[in-house]
């Protein structure tokens, strides 16, 4: 157990270090000019610009600057965001609080819908329901998520006026002041948009796996015993579908994050995705670096959770039998 924790922590630290170096280097090479990004639209003389550059230590070599930045990050200081004029950590924390609500709801929703549709499609394989679900998946997979968001806006906000156009709370009100109902009405469309990204993959995979299960010998035996189709699906099918589902759904955290960037842009939802786009567009280097590191940790945690949950859910691994261990090293040790 300890070995597992230490190994994964080391892996994450190594990953973070490399990501930080690569990202830093890329921002360094890129045409983003931190000083002009900071100055913005104000008229500033050449001299003043140079003073800013000097004050920030931009004249030092990139390696020195990277070391300084990394040291500060290790101390929990990621610098000050230029566009929000706040500590990067503070900005990320604030924004992530809003984003995680959005992503969490969408994630749960897409998981449930995907699982349900997949099971229904497999149970009625080749029938109308199956075909309809397959077409639905194809359409969902082929449509850009931001376009779906715009369609939802056109129908529900512009035409029917059921939901607000954007933001996380009514205009002129901070999120903490808004009532639960107001927050939910602002969340509904973004959550729906974001949930669409994951559904089709999960549905198709669940369908495939469930068909395999339904064609197995024990399914035939259960049928011979007089088990109803749905009884079989709940008693045997679900367990077998669960493992690949967990791997896929927890592994999709990276796509979820990407999708949230698009959804938040369409709905001007003031979350982390929105901050990502703003920081990249306006050349806010400290914030962008911070978000990159943060999102890497986020994705890593998602994948780690998938691995751990699979180990917990799979009795072959949980009971510690040799059959479950696939890695070569373990085989060598036991042999």
């Amino acid at each position: 157990m300890w070995k597992f924790i230490i190994k994964n922590t080391l892996r994450m630290l190594l990953l973070l270090w490399v990501v930080s170096v690569v990202t830093f280097a890329m921002v360094e090479i890129s045409p983003i000019d931190a000083v002009s990004a900071y100055v913005g639209e104000y008229a500033v003389t050449e001299q003043q610009q140079q003073k800013i550059a000097e004050y920030w230590g931009l004249n030092e070599s990139p390696v020195v600057r990277y070391c300084k930045w990394a040291k500060n990050v290790l101390h929990g200081d990621m610098g000050v965001s230029m566009i929000y004029r706040k500590n990067v950590m503070e900005v990320i924390g604030e924004r992530f609080g809003l984003s995680i609500v959005l992503m969490g709801c969408a994630w749960v929703l897409s998981g449930l819908i995907g699982l349900f549709l997949g099971i229904v499609a497999a149970t009625y394989q080749g029938r109308l329901a199956d075909k309809a679900i397959k077409v639905y998946c194809l359409l969902l997979e082929s449509s850009p998520s931001f376009w779906i968001g715009m369609l939802l806006l056109i129908v529900f906000s512009v035409r029917l006026r059921l939901f607000p156009m954007g933001l996380a709370s009514p205009i002129g009100m901070s999120v903490s002041e808004a009532t639960l109902g107001q927050r939910l009405s602002h969340l509904a469309l973004p959550v729906l948009t974001l949930s669409f990204t994951g559904i089709s993959k999960i549905t198709l995979q669940t369908r495939e796996k469930m068909i395999q299960v339904l064609e197995s010998d024990y399914a035939l035996f259960a049928k011979a015993r007089g088990e109803s189709v749905w009884g079989f699906v709940f008693r045997h099918g679900l367990r077998n579908v669960l493992l690949p589902f967990i791997i896929l759904h927890f592994g999709s955290v990276s796509e979820l994050f990407g999708g949230s960037v698009l959804a938040e842009t369409v709905f001007t939802y003031p979350g982390l995705g929105n901050a990502t786009v703003q920081s990249a567009l306006k050349g806010d280097v400290p914030l962008f670096l911070g978000i990159t590191l943060f999102s890497t940790i986020f994705v890593f945690c998602g994948n780690l959770a998938a691995n751990v949950l699979v180990a917990v859910a799979n009795p072959q691994i949980r009971e510690g039998g040799n059959r479950g261990k696939r890695s070569k090293k373990n085989e060598k040790v036991t042999a």
């Binding site: 990953l15 890329m26 090479i29 890129s30 978000i291 999102s295 994705v299």
Partner: peptide, 21 residues
């Protein structure tokens, strides 16, 4: 592969696109 998959796709895309102008 782990490195490339470790960073969210979209962020990496944005980064590379900016880098290339």
């Amino acid at each position: 592969v782990d490195l490339f998959m470790g960073v969210p796709h979209l962020i990496l895309l944005i980064l590379i696109s900016i880098l290339m102008g």
